[in-house]
Amino acid sequence: MIDWLKEKVEGEIGNTACESDERDLLNTFHYLFEFQNKTLSRVTVGSVETITFNGLRLTPIYCALLSHGIGLCGITKHLDLENCSIQCEGLQRLGPVLHKCQVLRLGNNKLGDSGVKLLSATLRNPDCKIQELGLDDVGLTESCTEDLVSALSTNRKLTGLNLGSNYFADRSVPAHRSLILTRRSLEWIWLWRNQFSSNGKRHLESLQESRPGLSVGV
């Protein structure tokens, strides 16, 4: 039974090219949740490193099942939840396990500033493993800048950050500059398609001169 389930999970996780494949994987996570056998579940999915649900609408219930599945894994190297219609309730269900991901992509979801407040708890977790974070096109405004930057500043592993296609403008430039200057591990930050003026863009781009290898895209 263990061998069969392990082979089933590994096959489904490695094959999520279409919506039906993604739903099959969610159904398997549902079975594991219903079994309530932690030993069986850990042996079955404990070695999973990449989970992709790009484009599949994830309801709060699906997010809870996914959270349970990720909770059974060790470190999840890559979790792609872009364009999954996740809102605050779904993000709240995922919150307890997101710190285990090294690459976390949440782009093109309706998270808004409230979602960032939920995510901030994950970023401040002392055990947070996030190295690359995608928050492009999630409806962020200048109102969340201080909270987001404060949370990101506690993460010493962060190497890449995508904040493109949001609503940041010049008022948020000082906070973004502070993050870039103080987070020495940061290798790239994308701020394309926001609402910065030409002057604001120049202030941000000039930070590339402060550290060799740093890339700031505005």
Rank of each mutant, 00 (worst) to 15 (best):
G95N: 09
N108L: 14
S114G: 08
R105D: 07
I86G: 01
L106S: 05
I86Q: 04
K100A: 06
V97P: 02
S85K: 12
D113S: 13
K100G: 03
E89R: 13
L94Q: 02
G115A: 13
G90R: 00
V97I: 15
L104G: 03
Q92H: 11
G107Y: 11
L119T: 06
G107S: 15
G90H: 07
G95W: 04
N108I: 07
K100I: 07
Q92S: 13
R105E: 11
L119H: 06
G95P: 00
G115C: 11
S85M: 07
C101W: 03
G112W: 03
D113R: 14
L111Q: 08
K110S: 15
R105T: 06
K117R: 15
N108K: 15
V116G: 06
G115V: 13
Q92N: 10
G115P: 08
S85G: 12
L104V: 12
K117I: 12
G107T: 09
Q92C: 02
P96T: 01
G112I: 10
L118R: 02
H99G: 03
G107N: 13
P96L: 06
V97Y: 05
L119Q: 08
K100V: 03
H99Y: 15
Q87G: 07
L118T: 13
C84W: 02
L98W: 05
G90V: 09
L119D: 08
L91A: 07
L118Q: 07
N109K: 08
G115S: 11
C101D: 02
K117Q: 15
N109S: 12
P96W: 05
R93E: 10
C101V: 05
L91N: 06
Q87V: 07
T122W: 02
S85F: 02
C84E: 01
R93K: 14
L104R: 06
S114L: 15
C101M: 08
E89I: 15
C84R: 01
P96S: 03
N109G: 13
V116D: 05
